[in-house]
Write a protein that binds this DNA or RNA. Structure first.
Length: 489
DNA sequence: AAAAAAC
């Protein structure tokens, strides 16, 4: 099976070919012909299954004929988060490069001026988050009466975020004669109801067992004391003993994201952060730095858990075990994408027993518990920081995780608004995501930018220690049952 | 419990 078998146009096939894809994924193979035949679709699929291309590709061919009129978009794609919306826009740019389709990205956090101007000119594709779409609609900037193709993406996430009433309202403003595609990783009752109400004789496409995790991802649990300092210490040990190409580190709280990124940077790591309290331009800028390899560690809230597609993410770390098992599946799905292998570590404290049990129940697999090996010296007194560093033997080899490579960030990028709504530059996107790491030879003492050895390290540790606030219980009592079960105790 | 989304 090739893309050529799916009924797509030659121009489109050329663009697909240029992007390096030869074989459609299962969801693409079954969805694309049906979409081209104008059928309604329910796609039950996780992100990472090629879901986005399964609607973007046929939409480009469908929209190739006909012309847009002012304020009357011809199609609408709804996404739960701004990042996802931007990502879909990138896909349209990539695959639509041989077509002359116009699109507008309607997301919050960026100025409305460009968006309104685009609408006024008329667009073929509207890609939007519900809030901004409703806002602009309320201002009379959009007419949805000419919108004959609707995509509701990540419907279960929309539900979680309370968007369903908005979605319903939007649906009623579209013409009744239209094609509707709905995608969701799971099909809870409210989503079924939504589908019943707004889809017409949909074709059901289910590609992977919901909530399954990719076999390409090796998963580990890492027991650790609940203290924030010790967790950070343990995390850094993991970062150093692993061959981290690039990593996303998830935290449950935005404050934790900020703190962790700060201390990682103090320790010389090339890290950045992303969470919902940041200005949108800054979120985009940070993501771009991560994509182009300027930073190789992204500390993130769950804003980045779902759907985010960055090539070459070798590791996912859960600094906090996620509260909801679904989130675990989504988070670790940021690695091991497109056939690559990935590793996922989850730091767990004594309080996470139930969360982990739920995750294992959901995924139907037990996650390997990492032994309390030498790397867990975090438990030992580490006041005299430099004298008791993490196992050096296991790092070295020039694979030092993160020599500081750029000056601490100033606030400058925040003010720059030019990055905003514009979809990311094509050129950057398709580069091999990461600059080749210096996985070279012996650790040559190369001077200049390299984080100076001991002094910086101990200074950073001292500051880290000072910021220690949490005093959650250490892992001292008996191991919870689920752990005993795993290690056979 | 948190996070996400409109000014």
């Amino acid at each position: 099976m090739t893309f050529a078998d799916l009924g797509l146009s030659d121009e489109l096939l050329a663009a697909v070919n240029d992007s390096g894809y030869t074989e459609p994924t299962p969801i693409q193979a079954s969805a694309i012909p049906s979409v081209l035949m104008m059928r309604d679709i329910i796609g039950v699929a996780q992100t990472g299954t090629g879901k986005t291309a399964s609607f973007v590709l046929p939409m480009i061919d469908i929209l190739a004929h006909g012309r847009s009129r002012a304020r009357m978009p011809r199609s609408l794609i709804l996404e739960p988060t701004r990042e996802l919306a931007a990502q879909v826009a990138e896909n349209f740019e990539k695959y639509g490069k041989n077509h002359k389709l116009s699109m507008a990205l309607l997301i919050g956090g960026v100025s409305m001026g460009d968006q309104m101007a685009a609408l006024e000119k008329g667009v073929d594709v509207l890609i939007a988050t519900p809030g901004r779409l409703m806002d602009l609609f309320g201002r009379g900037k959009i007419l949805l009466t000419g919108c004959s193709l609707l995509v509701i993406d990540e419907a279960d996430r929309m539900l979680d975020m309370g968007f369903i009433p908005d979605i319903e309202e939007i649906c009623t403003k579209l013409p009744k004669q239209r094609q509707t595609l709905l995608f969701s990783a799971t099909m809870p009752a409210p989503i079924k109801k939504l589908a019943d109400k707004f889809l017409d004789n949909p074709k059901m496409i289910e590609v992977s067992r919901p909530a399954s995790t990719s076999l390409n991802i090796k998963q580990y649990l890492v027991p650790v004391s609940g203290s924030a300092f010790k967790k950070r210490d343990r995390l850094r040990q993991l970062l150093e003993q692993e061959e981290v190409q690039s990593a996303i580190i998830f935290c449950n709280r935005k404050t934790t994201v900020r703190e962790l990124n700060k201390t990682l940077r103090q320790h010389g790591y090339k890290s950045g952060e992303i969470h919902g309290d940041m200005e949108q331009p800054q979120r985009i800028a940070e993501l771009d730095l991560f994509k182009d390899g300027t930073i190789n560690i992204l500390v993130a809230s769950d804003v980045a858990a779902r759907g985010l597609d960055v090539k070459g993410v070798s590791h996912v770390f859960n600094f906090d075990a996620p509260w909801h098992p679904d989130d675990y599946v989504h988070r670790i799905g940021r690695t091991g994408r497109a056939g690559a292998t990935g590793v996922a570590y989850t730091l767990i404290t004594s309080e996470d027993a139930e969360n982990i049990a739920n995750i294992e129940k959901l995924t139907g697999q037990t996650i390997e518990l990492l032994g309390d090996g030498p790397a867990s010296t975090a438990a030992a007194p580490s006041d005299d920081t430099d004298s008791a560093p993490a196992p050096r033997a296991r790092r070295g080899r020039g694979e030092r995780a993160a020599p500081r490579a750029r000056a601490p960030r100033t606030t400058a990028p925040v003010e720059e608004t030019r990055v905003q709504a514009a979809p990311a530059e094509e050129a950057v996107r398709d580069e091999p995501a990461r600059a080749p790491r210096s996985r070279d030879r012996a650790p040559t003492r190369d001077t200049q930018d390299r984080a100076p050895p001991s002094t910086q390290r101990s200074e950073a540790l001292r500051r880290d220690r000072e910021e220690e606030t949490a005093t959650a219980g250490d892992w001292n009592g008996p191991l919870p049952d689920f752990l005993n079960a795993i290690i056979g105790g």
